[in-house]
Design a protein around this nucleic acid. Sequence first.
DNA 1: TCCATCGTTCGAATTATTTCGAACCTTTCG
DNA 2: CGAAAGGTTCGAAATAATTCGAACGATGGA
Lengths: 110, 110
Amino acid sequence: MSSSPDLPHPERSEISLTTVLFALSDPERLAIARQLVDGPLDMAECHLSNPDVPKSTKSHLMKVLRTSGVVRNEANGRGRRLSLRREDLDARFPGLLDVVLSAEDGDAKP
Amino acid sequence: MSSSPDLPHPERSEISLTTVLFALSDPERLAIARQLVDGPLDMAECHLSNPDVPKSTKSHLMKVLRTSGVVRNEANGRGRRLSLRREDLDARFPGLLDVVLSAEDGDAKP
DNA sequence: TCCATCGTTCGAATTATTTCGAACCTTTCG
DNA sequence: CGAAAGGTTCGAAATAATTCGAACGATGGA
């Protein structure tokens, strides 16, 4: 009954600005973060722009978002529940999330 | 009298969010941008955290900032004048610069 | 004019990220 | 129990980013 692996997350005070910016500097990762603004989502509900990428790649994208402190990733049944760490990010870098997630993209990265 | 090379800059509408985030996701580049908040600086006045990095490396850091649209780099006498593209960035991504440049860093990237 | 200064560019070497398949684990359901 | 669903991890291969020296160009002053 003990659930799937408990993955490590940085605590609020450990979240680094440059690391967060890096995590969000990839269009695919940014798009994932944006899917979470309206509330948590099961990982299976999180869609990538290319639906054919293997699950290991998707998992790696999630790992970058998790280890940077942008997203929380907890076991949920047989799957995973993803959520934005909005409170932590707002406390640490006020306004950042709002600005980044609401901005118009401009070009995707070449 | 024609001055040193005129380097290419993206125009406002071409500035991409993810590219800007990437440019600022490096601690050294972020530090450079922060030195420009109070006004333009000659490149020679822009200090890196490690004063021993070769000029070609410094030039490359500047190139990333320039090609992303964060910084303007124009010839100025025998040197170069650097400035934040605040108006363009504020127009394109309102609030982003304020938030990022005023935020406390947290850890530098490992 | 000659030369030192300030910076860019190029190419090669190093290092970091990304991508993906295979192996593995847990939960759910028949 | 057994098998399918949903995900993580590992390692290797492919890509991308960084670093630096050397070569070059333009400017300003002696």
